[in-house]
């Protein structure tokens, strides 16, 4: 059973009807005319709904329970994947997956947040919220990639770093901070893709890249809309307003010009509607971006990344 967001509801009814018609179609009873008509209607309705999304609706899409997660993209975009575990200090963090694979034959390192699909998996993945050991594992693998001169791809999809007692004890802030500093100094290409939720420092800790890309229905922000309204409005229920104020969608951030490099389009109805097509779109962009970065020397890669982030401010003097 597919799950639908509130604003997808009208679409859900149509698709249910379509599903039934297909089910009842036999050699003797032909609904093909009817089915075609409904399909056309569904496509039109989808276009209508998706051309008028609010920022809050886009945020919900970024968190859609059926949205492809890092491991889905790894399976569809790369080959020869093997996962590496543990930060060599404390434990393995399932909320952040790391490993190596090939992109059209080319060896690459992959780092990404991982959310679960069903309840058990969600808990196991801690809803995609890493602990310090997750960030330390990520850094270990990124620096290993550097050691073997292999480019790094990261996939960002987290509500944020986990706010817990253990996380604080083991230095959540220090783990994130260290990643920011060390990623800035990596001598291999680093390509970041925000696939779903780019939640604050927990996202940024694997997002200091030469190229930063956002999928069409992803969001990226200093704080979640809920967190923002809890603090600024002292009322956690005004997420829709906060989403408007934070201007957190891919389109908004692309308008600032210097924060992200490209918005990756998604199939009609969002990546969850056609994960295979979404993966194709990502793959094409990643290959192009990598080819471009491979023209740079190690020093140039570090300098290009530094200057990219150096330019990020708007002040009055």
């Amino acid at each position: 059973m597919r799950s639908y967001l509130d604003f997808e509801r009208p679409l859900a009814d149509l698709e249910q009807k379509l599903h039934e018609l297909r089910e009842y179609s036999t050699d003797s009873v032909d609904f093909s005319g009817e089915i075609k008509k409904l399909e056309k209607k569904a496509t039109k309705l989808r276009e209508e709904i998706f051309s008028n999304l609010t920022r809050w609706q886009r945020t919900q899409l970024a968190r859609h329970p059926e949205r492809p997660h890092t491991l889905d993209y790894i399976e569809k975009v790369f080959t020869d994947w093997f996962e590496l575990h543990g930060d060599r200090n404390f434990r393995d963090d399932p909320a952040l997956v790391c490993g190596f694979a090939r992109l059209d034959g080319e060896p690459v390192a992959i780092i990404g947040h991982q959310k679960g699909r069903d309840t058990k998996a969600k808990v196991h993945r801690n809803f995609g919220m890493p602990n310090p050991e997750g960030y330390r594992k990520a850094l270990r693998v990124m620096q290993m990639a550097e050691q073997f001169d292999i480019p790094v791809f990261t996939f960002v999809d987290t509500p944020g770093a986990y706010p817990g007692i253990g996380a604080e004890e083991r230095g959540q802030a220090e783990a994130i901070a260290r990643n920011l500093r060390e990623m800035a100094a990596l001598t291999v290409p680093v390509i970041v893709t925000i696939t779903g939720e780019g939640g604050s420092g927990g996202a940024l800790a694997i997002a200091v890249g030469n190229k930063v890309l956002m999928m069409q229905y992803s969001v990226y922000s200093v704080i979640s809309p809920e967190g923002c309204t809890a603090i600024l409005w002292s009322d956690g229920t005004r997420g829709p307003e906060a989403a408007e104020a934070l201007k957190l969608t891919a389109a908004d951030i692309n308008e600032l010009k210097f924060v992200i490099d490209e918005v990756i389009p998604e199939p009609a109805g969002g990546a969850h509607n056609d994960p295979a097509a979404a993966a194709e779109m990502i793959k094409a962009v990643l290959k192009n971006q990598l080819a471009e970065l491979q023209k740079l020397t190690k020093d140039e890669l570090v300098e290009q990344r530094y200057q990219k982030f150096r330019a990020m401010s708007m002040v009055e003097e």
Partner: peptide, 26 residues
């Protein structure tokens, strides 16, 4: 912490300042 009213750009200040520290350290 980061200033919410500048949204994504506030977040980016964390990366920018830390990157400068990488150079200082080196």
């Amino acid at each position: 912490g980061a200033r919410m009213q500048e949204s994504i750009l506030s977040l980016m200040q964390m990366a920018k300042s830390s990157a400068a520290l990488a150079k200082l350290k080196a």
